[in-house]
């Protein structure tokens, strides 16, 4: 089982498979908590997407590099410690460079460590593959998760707040304030920003994904193996 495809070269397929076909959010239902909690605006969603990307890329690469050293019997605690280290680094970086945005999404940055999506990639992919492929897979996972976060974030921000990409200056400096678009003068559905709106809009989005065919049920056996442990 181990190193089953280890000698395959790095290919863009790893990226697209992780980002689209095996998308962490809509194909595997992983990382639901941050997906619903932080998708109220595009700015918050971008912040968490970048933070999660940093953690999944860092931990996947390190775990792949260390895969021959980590003893098989203690691999899960090792993975969790590596992920927790990268999460702590992310918290420190955000505290230093984007404090205002961080203080809005602080709790969900701190609990990236319990995001099953990241542990899943470590266990199923990074611990068995060379570093190039693990990096491709991490990039794909990060982009896939960001896609889901940003799509949901955009819909909820437009409906609930009437704007698109407000407050981007909190993340990318004062120049980014110009990115803000005013779509509606009066927000058409204020509920979208509130918790019930998150559940309902995500439910409708999943229904759309399901009717388009990329459903959680139609995943490959490969994806089945990395559902919640």
């Amino acid at each position: 089982m181990k190193y089953n495809r280890a000698n395959q070269p790095v290919s863009p397929n790893d990226f697209t498979h992780a980002a689209i076909a095996n998308n962490p959010a809509w194909a595997q239902l992983l990382g639901l908590c941050p997906l619903l909690a932080v998708s109220n605006t595009v700015a918050n969603a971008t912040g968490l997407a970048l933070a999660s990307a940093f953690v999944v890329i860092g931990s996947n690469t390190s775990i792949s590099l260390l895969r021959r050293i980590i003893p098989d019997i203690a691999r899960l605690p090792c993975f969790v410690l590596i992920i927790a280290t990268f999460t702590t680094l992310t918290v420190m970086l955000l505290e230093a460079y984007a404090f205002d945005l961080y203080s809005r999404i602080a709790l969900f940055v701190q609990i990236i460590v319990t995001n099953c999506m990241i542990l899943g990639r470590a266990e199923v992919f990074a611990s068995r593959q060379p570093v190039g492929r693990a990096l491709m897979d991490a990039l794909g996972t990060a982009v896939g998760f960001a896609l889901a976060l940003l799509l949901l974030g955009a819909v909820r921000e437009v409906l609930g707040q009437g704007t698109l990409m407000a407050d981007m200056d909190l993340l990318f400096g004062p120049a980014a304030a110009a990115l803000q678009l005013q779509v509606f003068a009066v927000p058409p559905l204020a509920l979208a920003l509130l918790p019930p709106g998150a559940f309902i809009i995500a439910g409708l989005a999943f229904a759309l994904a399901q009717s388009l065919g990329s459903t959680a049920k139609a995943t490959t056996p490969h994806a089945e193996a990395q559902k919640h442990p």
Binding site: P195, P196, G203, F206
Partner: peptide
């Protein structure tokens, strides 16, 4: 309906429950 079976309907029900908890 096929589109709603499983997770989507669960999320929608959770939304209504969340509305009640508000």
């Amino acid at each position: 309906p096929h589109a709603f079976a499983g997770t989507p309907i669960a999320l929608l029900s959770a939304g209504l429950m969340s509305l009640a908890f508000m």
